[in-house]
Amino acid sequence: MEPKYRTHVLMVVFSVLALVGMIACSKQKPKPLVPLTLETGAPAQAVSLTEQGIQAYHGRQFEEAKGYFTQAVAAAPQSGPAHYNYALALYSLGDAEEARKHFMEAANLAPGDKVIWDSPALHQFGNPESPKAMKEHQTTTSRPTFGGGPR
């Protein structure tokens, strides 16, 4: 191989490696999963339980947080953030299957909530608008599912 050609190849290789390195470094780290406050108008008891659950969650006391969030869901069963918080606690405790159900319920109850829909935790369970997710979710609730049901 001629020295001039070899230099050119090396420059191309280093350029590609530099480009790959810049792309890899430019990707933002996923935001940490944090519980949400309840929406305006939620029952005061649910709000109080959620605040206690958030404190426990931030203290990495996930079992305690789960207890508070369970009670918050019972006090505000139509609250997307309440289900989302409960799902976070379940997920943190390793109960991914039960967490999935509550992440999906949270998304169903809060269709415009970008935090819930964009959550990395929810995304790992697949696209909630996929026919499979809608079919699975339809069997667990009588409310309309994502986008009003299967298409």
Rank of each mutant, 00 (worst) to 15 (best):
E2K: 14
Y5V: 00
Y5N: 01
V9L: 10
M11C: 02
V12L: 04
V16I: 12
L19I: 01
I23V: 10
K29F: 12
K31M: 08
P35N: 08
L36H: 11
T37F: 07
L38T: 02
A42V: 10
A44F: 04
Q45D: 00
A46T: 03
T50I: 02
E51K: 07
Q52E: 07
Q52M: 04
I54D: 02
A56W: 03
A56Y: 08
Y57F: 13
G59I: 14
G59R: 15
E63T: 15
E63H: 14
E63V: 14
E64L: 08
E64I: 12
A65G: 12
F69E: 08
Q71F: 06
A76S: 10
S79Y: 04
A82D: 02
Y86A: 06
A89W: 06
A89Y: 06
L90M: 15
L93F: 09
R100T: 07
R100C: 00
R100K: 10
L109H: 11
P111L: 01
G112V: 05
G112R: 08
W117Y: 08
D118N: 06
P120R: 14
A121G: 04
Q124K: 11
Q124L: 08
N127A: 08
K132E: 06
K135G: 12
Q138L: 00
Q138H: 09
T140L: 07
T140S: 11
F146A: 09
F146L: 06
G149N: 10
P150T: 06
